[in-house]
């Protein structure tokens, strides 16, 4: 019993490695900010292409979402970071993660947006267009606000997935939370930093997951 506490819940070690963990957390936060923003914006653009009546926009965007939802994000990340240098393209770990996540996340966010846009009735489009609003104005003032509200739980739960996935960045030596925790583990020969990292993820994401459930129940009611 004593050894389990020592190995996994060693407060002394947790305290000693805390600065390292916090600097990892800071990197994770920066990474999240970048990839969530890229995903939200990229996803919206892909979704708009996806519902476009123009085939030259629609078809590539459908192929894009299909490919990047089917491709494992870890494969994509390692290819961008370790594969592309063979083509002479050197890329920093942060940029590699941002690019891989942009491709992966925007295809997932696009599907969520698309469902939201389709959930807004044709009547809303017609009412807005009949008052002389352009397509872009109709989209931005009438359709998207309703679309986003309708899929808010899905956008949020997708964002939770994105935050969790940022731990993949540890494989390209980006010193985010998991990478630093694992480094602390190897320095201290103790698993407590890993437990601490897991606890930090839990503390941050648990409330969000709860919130998603409550939203979903509210929308279903």
């Amino acid at each position: 019993m004593q050894s389990i506490t020592d190995q996994f819940f060693n407060l002394t070690i947790m305290a000693k490695t805390l600065p390292l963990m916090l600097s990892g957390l800071w990197m994770t936060a920066q990474l999240c900010a970048a990839v969530i923003l890229l995903g939200l914006v990229g996803g919206l653009l892909v979704a708009l292409a996806n519902i476009s009546p123009r085939a030259w926009l629609r078809i590539p965007s459908i192929v894009f979402t299909d490919i990047f939802r089917a491709l494992p994000p870890l494969v994509l990340l390692i290819f961008i970071y370790s594969g592309l240098p063979f083509a002479g393209v050197e890329i920093s770990p942060f940029a590699a993660v941002a690019l891989a996540f942009l491709l992966n996340n925007s295809s997932y966010y696009a599907e969520v947006y698309r469902a939201g846009i389709l959930s807004v009735g044709k009547g809303q489009w017609e009412a807005a267009r009949s008052t002389g609003l352009t397509k872009a104005q109709t989209l931005s003032s009438v359709v998207l606000p309703q679309a986003i509200r309708n899929v808010l739980p899905d956008l949020l739960s997708n964002t939770v997935e994105v935050v969790k996935l940022t731990s993949l960045a540890s494989v390209v030596s980006l010193s985010e939370l998991l990478y630093n925790a694992n480094m602390a583990r190897s320095i201290t020969y103790n698993a407590s930093p890993l437990v601490l990292a897991a606890l930090i993820y839990l503390v941050i994401l648990w409330p969000v997951v709860r919130l998603v459930s409550r939203f979903q129940r509210k929308l279903a009611a």
């Binding site: 809303q124 009412a127 309703q146």
Partner: peptide
């Protein structure tokens, strides 16, 4: 329109 189509938001 028959269905009014006010902007609900």
């Amino acid at each position: 329109f028959q269905g009014f189509h006010l902007y609900p938001h």
